[in-house]
Amino acid sequence: LAALPAGALRAAEHADVEAAIAAFAGGAPVKEGGVEVEAPEIAENGNTVPISVAAEGAEAILILAAGNPNPDVATFHFGKLAVPAASTRIRLAGTQDVIAVAKFADGSFGRAARTVKVTIGGCGG
């Protein structure tokens, strides 16, 4: 992997993320916006980065970390009693984009991303 040029690595990251989004959306178009991602601009410790997602009218929100070995982080599903928002703590291997994709009750999808700078990566050992 180290032998790959940086551009190829970025493209590989991108392909993984887009595949995960397409699987979540079942091939439906995904618009920009409609979902909020809150995360610190700089995270000193990539082992535990607090994030929050929220999307008015969402049934589910998918969270991806574009630069992790595996981009999947979590998918939240919201019932009728829930406010469509959740917070958790995640691992980030390095500086990267955290992406949220919301599935709305009308079958539409929206996405947003936030870049988190990570000082110490969270996939070591």
């Binding site: 082992n47 599903h77 019932g79 959740a86 958790t88 691992r91 980030l92 969270g122």
Partner: peptide, 10 residues
């Protein structure tokens, strides 16, 4: 609420 979690959760 339910959540599917992956190894990237702390």
């Amino acid at each position: 609420v339910s959540a599917d979690l992956h190894p990237a959760v702390s």
